[in-house]
């Protein structure tokens, strides 16, 4: 009899504690629910904040990085003397490897008509080092810029590049507007 009493008392304490834990969890959930979002968020680069430091190539958990160069063709001047394609001290304007800025030769230069050239990024070769972006932004229109390619991005809980980005250019954006491609995305349209 005494044993039974003891047992029921222990059960009572246990179920009481369980209930209070449940209430605590409910409270935590409730407070968190205030900031709940049904929208999916993904990481993306603001090309206007990016300072082309080169960490995107080295800090991503993926090798090669999920950050790639994107070409906003609408903004391109189709220059022969391309600041994003050619090294500043290039011998001649050609496709020779020693003249190219890109370390992996991921940019294909194609003649369109005199004197215009088209520049297309080979995403598989691009490592996201931003060398071309720097060249294009400082000498050209800035049509080349970095973006996180969501087919490759694992959408880590905390983006390891965002943590190290010196200009806080990487932030979470709504998945419905997953890219900040220059042209449609302007400096003023920032969220």
């Amino acid at each position: 009899m005494e044993n039974n009493n003891k047992k029921s008392r222990r059960d009572f304490i246990r179920s009481g504690t369980r209930l209070s834990i449940l209430l605590t969890l409910g409270a935590v959930g409730g407070i968190a629910a205030k900031h709940l979002t049904a929208e999916k968020y993904v990481w993306q680069i603001d090309p206007f904040k990016c300072t082309q430091c080169g960490r995107c190539a080295t800090s991503c958990v993926m090798t090669p990085s999920a950050v790639k160069c994107i070409h906003a063709f609408n903004l391109c001047g189709y220059c022969d003397l391309c600041g994003g394609y050619l090294k500043p001290d290039a011998n001649k304007r050609s496709t020779a490897a020693e003249d190219q800025l890109c370390p992996t030769a991921a940019i294909a230069r194609k003649f369109i008509e005199e004197p215009y050239f088209e520049y297309v990024i080979n995403e598989d070769l691009c490592i996201g080092c931003a060398k071309c972006v720097k060249g294009c932004t400082s000498f050209g229109n800035g049509s080349l810029h970095l973006q996180i390619i969501h087919k490759r991005c694992l959408n880590c809980n905390e983006c390891s590049i965002a943590r190290l980005c010196p200009s806080q250019a990487i932030s979470r954006v709504k998945a419905s507007k997953a890219y900040n491609v220059k042209g449609s995305f302007t400096k003023d349209s920032k969220v």
Binding site: H71, Y78, N141, I149, H150, A178
Partner: peptide
């Protein structure tokens, strides 16, 4: 450097942006 007007029938590609 403004975008040129192309005389030949050049069609401009669009950047590939796969959805998450």
């Amino acid at each position: 450097f403004p975008k040129p007007e192309f005389g030949t029938g050049y069609s401009q590609p669009t950047p590939v942006t796969p959805e998450p």
